[in-house]
Amino acid sequence: RGFLEKAAVKKMAKAIMADPNKADEVYKKWADKGYTLTQMSNFLKSKTAGKYDRVYNGYVIHLD
């Protein structure tokens, strides 16, 4: 289950990176699912340092 969630989160993160207008909708879905910042950090780990920082930081702001 965790692997599928991670894959889904990364897919949506890539969608945000391609079209930032989708961010609020995606952040709301993640918040509704109760994803914590720790979970998001783990889901968005990448071999490329900083690749998903913008998405993660946007989610931090959304939760605030």
Rank of each mutant, 00 (worst) to 15 (best):
A7M: 13
G58E: 05
Y56K: 04
R54F: 07
I16R: 00
L37A: 09
S41C: 14
I61L: 13
V26Y: 08
Y52R: 01
E5H: 07
H62Y: 15
Q39T: 06
H62Q: 03
V9K: 01
T36K: 03
A15Y: 06
D64M: 15
Y35V: 04
R1W: 05
L37R: 08
Q39C: 08
E25Y: 09
D64E: 15
R1V: 14
Y27E: 01
D24R: 09
I16Q: 00
N57Y: 14
D19K: 04
K6E: 09
E5G: 08
D32R: 08
M17Y: 04
E5K: 06
K33L: 14
Y35L: 06
I16P: 01
D19Q: 06
K33Q: 13
I61G: 08
V60L: 10
I16W: 00
A23Y: 02
F43N: 02
A49T: 10
D24P: 14
T36M: 02
T36Q: 03
Q39P: 01
K33N: 10
D32Y: 07
D53F: 05
T48K: 11
K29V: 15
S46I: 06
K6A: 14
E25N: 07
E25L: 09
K10Y: 04
E5L: 07
M17Q: 05
M12C: 15
D32Q: 12
M40N: 00
K10T: 08
A15C: 12
P20T: 05
N57F: 14
F3H: 12
K14S: 09
G50E: 06
V9G: 01
A23P: 01
F43I: 09
A8I: 13
A8F: 09
Q39R: 05
Y52C: 03
A23M: 07
Y59K: 01
A18R: 12
K29H: 14
F3K: 14
Y59H: 01
Q39H: 07
M17I: 11
V26S: 03
M40D: 00
K22I: 14
M12P: 00
H62K: 04
A31D: 05
Q39G: 03
L4M: 12
M17T: 03
K10A: 04
V55F: 02
R54G: 13
I61E: 14
L37H: 05
